[in-house]
């Protein structure tokens, strides 16, 4: 369906290995910086010790979010997603400008993984003599070793729900998982919702932490991480609204989104960020789109083919 209204970007937030904010990430991209990679400590001494992850930019999440309390409910993906969404929402002045019920939230999230700090005590306390988990032992003593907040950190809808609580968003919502294509759907749905008038504003983006040791092992074993490639934890969120509301409120417009697409395809997975940043899977479409909106020149093409064989693409008309 053709868009009924001009959709513009008035807020951008990013946390990538290149920078802890949108400005830092974009500046590093333009400068040609590549992320520093390092081995994953939990894989040391194993046959997967060669796998590398990008080193996250220094980030004081409590200071960025203005609250330490919520962090105890958050996985690493949730931390990245909430910080990026908060940066975008603050930049666009979402709170106070819109009826919260008319602000939609459209999110992508990568594979779920409890932090090993939370998961290993439960699992190792549930092992039988054979070294395997036994449910009887889990019921007896494994669950007693659990962080009672662990479920909040595992459930894949929680990062988006945390965004909704922190930013006060009450409108339509969708959360897609776990690869690039599904996360691209979050951006597509946000764009469509604003263009069609279903919402006045859409906060849309994605977060992923493929550097989580268990997820990294999965990616390597399943062949989804090609030899020689590294991974990167990242998140990016954008605030979309109609050009007329942005103009009415005299907001800075970063770019216009003239088209957003998602189609099944037969192409091999391809991520323009992989070489300099590492594969961030679900986060990649949002990071690409955010970079393109930040940069009038030098941005990577907004086109990514996910491991789910869906191509996400967007056309951006820069206003910066």
């Amino acid at each position: 369906m053709p868009p009924a209204a001009e959709v513009v970007v008035t807020g951008i937030g990013m946390v990538t290995p290149l920078g802890a904010t949108a400005a830092e990430s974009a500046a590093a991209w333009v400068a040609g910086t590549s992320a520093r990679r390092a081995p994953v400590a939990e894989l040391a001494g194993t046959s997967l010790a060669h796998l590398q992850a990008a080193v996250r930019a220094p980030l004081d999440a409590a200071a960025r979010l203005g609250s330490r309390k919520m962090l105890k409910f958050m996985s690493e993906s949730a931390v990245l997603g909430c910080v990026a969404a908060h940066e975008a929402a603050e930049a666009a002045g979402v709170r106070g400008r819109f009826n919260p019920g008319r602000v939609g939230l459209y999110s992508g999230i990568g594979m779920a993984g409890a932090s090993l700090e939370d998961a290993l005590p439960v699992i190792t306390a549930s092992l039988g003599a054979s070294g395997r988990v036994e449910s009887r032992i889990m019921g007896e003593r494994g669950l007693a070793a659990a962080n009672p907040l662990m479920s909040f950190k595992i459930l894949p809808n929680m990062p988006a729900c945390l965004v909704s609580i922190i930013e006060g968003l009450r409108g339509p919502n969708l959360i897609f998982t776990p690869w690039e294509g599904q996360a691209g759907a979050a951006l597509l749905e946000g764009w469509k919702a604003v263009a069609s008038g279903e919402v006045d504003c859409a906060v849309c983006g994605a977060a992923d932490n493929p550097a989580h040791p268990a997820i990294l092992v999965h990616l390597a074993r399943s062949g989804r991480l090609p030899p020689g490639e590294s991974v990167a934890a990242a998140a990016a969120y954008l605030v979309l609204e109609r050009a007329d509301t942005a103009g009415r409120d005299n907001r800075k417009v970063w770019a216009q989104l003239t088209s957003v697409g998602l189609e099944a395809c037969d192409d091999e997975p391809a991520d323009p960020l992989a070489g300099r940043m590492g594969r961030s899977f679900a986060a990649a479409p949002a990071v690409l789109l955010a970079l393109a909106c930040c940069l009038s020149v030098g941005a990577p093409p907004v086109s990514v083919v996910g491991v789910d064989r869906q191509r996400f693409s967007a056309e951006v008309r820069s206003r910066s």
């Binding site: 809808n157 759907a185 869906q310």
Partner: peptide
């Protein structure tokens, strides 16, 4: 055309 998995 699209395959989506939603986790709400």
């Amino acid at each position: 055309r699209r395959s989506l998995t939603n986790v709400s």
